[in-house]
Computed example of a mutant assay.
Amino acid sequence: MDRVVIFVLCFSLFIGGATHIFDNLYYGFLPYKFAPEWVNIYWTALAVIDIVAVYLLVKWRNAGLVLTLVIMLSDVAINSVAFYSLNVLSDSSALQLQTLFLGFCIGSSIWLWQSKSKANVVNVT
């Protein structure tokens, strides 16, 4: 069951990272011109940070869990500010899905951290 949960975390982070990579390739570096510069930099950095989290989840589970939680906590917080205070996001559905995923990350991280199975998802030698 651990592998299934880690797969869901990795898949979700990969999709998020791939979305930001696409935005950077298609629209250019720092593509979120409608947002304040600090938000634009954060969203752009997620292209790399999300992929690093996937790698860490596969190679060093606990480090990957910590980074995943940091990513999702900061992402929900920044996107909440962008939506509710800065009004740079017009649709709250992505924020609601990210908040739901944050809850999944918190719950599964507690469970995975305490899991007896500390084996990597992929046995890379």
Rank of each mutant, 00 (worst) to 15 (best):
V52C: 03
L25R: 08
S90I: 07
Y55R: 03
R61H: 12
I49C: 10
W38T: 09
G17Q: 04
Y55A: 14
L89I: 06
G16H: 09
L57M: 14
L86K: 05
K33P: 05
V81S: 02
V76S: 02
G64L: 01
D75L: 12
I21W: 14
V76T: 06
P36E: 09
V48S: 13
M72E: 11
E37D: 15
I78Y: 06
Y55S: 07
L67K: 00
L56R: 03
S85L: 13
T19N: 11
Y84S: 09
A63F: 07
G16A: 09
V66N: 07
V88T: 02
V66C: 05
I78K: 03
F14K: 06
F29Y: 15
V54P: 00
Y42M: 04
K59L: 10
K59G: 04
P31H: 13
F34T: 10
A35N: 05
L46N: 00
L25C: 14
G64H: 01
V81C: 06
N24E: 11
Y55P: 01
E37S: 06
L73R: 04
A82T: 12
V76L: 03
I21E: 02
M72Q: 12
I71K: 01
P31G: 10
I51R: 06
K59C: 05
L30C: 04
G28P: 05
F83Q: 07
V66T: 15
F29C: 07
G16C: 05
I15M: 09
M72W: 07
Y27S: 08
N24R: 03
V70T: 12
L73A: 10
N40G: 00
Y55N: 04
Y42K: 01
Y55C: 09
A82L: 11
Y27K: 15
F29W: 15
M72P: 04
N24Y: 07
T68A: 14
A63M: 06
W60A: 12
N79H: 12
F29V: 14
V88E: 00
L57S: 06
L73H: 05
S85T: 02
N62P: 02
A77E: 00
V58C: 11
G17W: 07
V81N: 02
I21D: 02
